[in-house]
């Protein structure tokens, strides 16, 4: 199996053993069916044990898994007739963000998402899913269009962060992100955001101001990467594992902190093990979200959005 994570090794070893016994049984006179059954039930226990007790760092590894499905994978499963549109009409087309329209259960929706590449070549084209200002401006252009034609907006969040480059700064990375935050606040159509991989800082948030925010179970959402946090706080990027725990970045942490609405479960071993199953889980949540949001008037929608963000945070009074 490709890309086995360290903590999954016992499972993989056991699976290999079972496969070995199975082929042995088939090709010889000795029947090992009973042993195989024992091992299989042990495998199931082991899987529950390992995948049921993932540490924050393990989830970071899952969120960054090279096989982890991307926005376009989910778009292909959740929607029909997706048409991608390009460009911000000012500077260029940033392929670190995909945007377009599609049908969700027969209704047209606007879909926007960060887009990583699947291999090195695609990653270079997509800048590893780290957008420039024109990416955010493209997204905003599509959001405004969704508002005009009264389509709900669905955003997939999956980025290490906005690209820290010279050209990005020159073209106003800060303004592009800030503008999206402000404009998303006022869009009179439902916005549902789903964090599917890494939600890295302002670059993630720029597609993340919505009415419902969901996270896949093994995704992360944070103000800074664990490595960045460790370097800043303890001057040692090697302490990333510790930072992953301290910074509270898992879906369970964010649910507890009241930042997200729902945790979307993942198939055993992560989203990449079963894209179909994962998409079904997402479809269910998305359907419920859009149904409940479609009942609100424009005023109610905006008021709820404000109330939602207004309550986020924790401070003392003296």
């Amino acid at each position: 199996m490709n890309h086995v994570l360290e903590f999954e090794k016992p499972i993989v070893n056991l699976k290999e053993k079972i496969a070995e016994l199975k082929s042995f049984t088939e090709n010889s006179d000795i029947d090992l069916t009973a042993e195989i059954e024992t091992l299989e039930s042990r495998l199931s226990v082991l899987e529950d044990e390992i995948y049921g007790n993932l540490k924050p760092w393990n989830r970071v590894q899952m969120a960054r898994h090279p096989m982890r499905p991307t926005s376009l994978d989910y778009i292909g499963k959740l929607f029909t007739d997706f048409i991608e549109f390009h460009g911000d009409r000012h500077f260029g087309d940033d392929e670190a963000i995909v945007a377009g329209i599609a049908y969700f259960k027969g209704e047209p929706v606007t879909v926007i998402g960060h887009q990583r590449g699947k291999d090195t070549k695609e990653n270079i084209r997509r800048n590893f899913g780290m957008p420039h200002p024109e990416g955010y401006r493209k997204a905003l252009r599509h959001m405004k269009q969704a508002e005009k034609f009264n389509r709900p907006i669905i955003c997939f969040i999956d980025t290490k962060g906005a690209y820290p480059g010279k050209a990005a700064e020159e073209r106003g990375q800060s303004e592009a992100i800030a503008r999206n935050l402000m404009e998303m606040a006022g869009l009179t159509v439902p916005i549902v955001c789903i964090v599917i991989g890494e939600g890295g800082s302002g670059g993630a948030l720029a597609l993340g101001v919505g009415d419902h925010i969901h996270m896949l179970e093994n995704s992360t959402y944070s103000v800074i990467s664990p490595e960045g946090a460790a370097a800043l706080l303890w001057k040692d990027s090697g302490q990333a594992q510790r930072a992953a725990e301290t910074m509270k970045i898992t879906s369970y942490d964010l649910k507890k902190l009241n930042v997200i609405d729902q945790i979307i479960p993942e198939p055993k071993g992560g989203a990449h093990r079963d894209l179909d199953q994962q998409s079904l889980y997402m479809e269910e949540v998305l359907k419920t979200s859009l149904e409940s949001l479609s009942k609100l008037s424009n005023e109610e929608l905006l008021e709820h959005r404000w109330e939602k963000y207004k309550q986020i945070g924790d401070y003392d009074l003296i």
Binding site: A178, L181, A185, S201, G202, L205, G208, V209, Y221, S222, V223, M247, K248, I249, D253, L254, L257, V259, Y309, I312, G313, D314
Partner: peptide, 8 residues
């Protein structure tokens, strides 16, 4: 992440 959300 609570700091991040203050931006929003």
């Amino acid at each position: 992440v609570l700091s991040l959300m203050q931006m929003a």
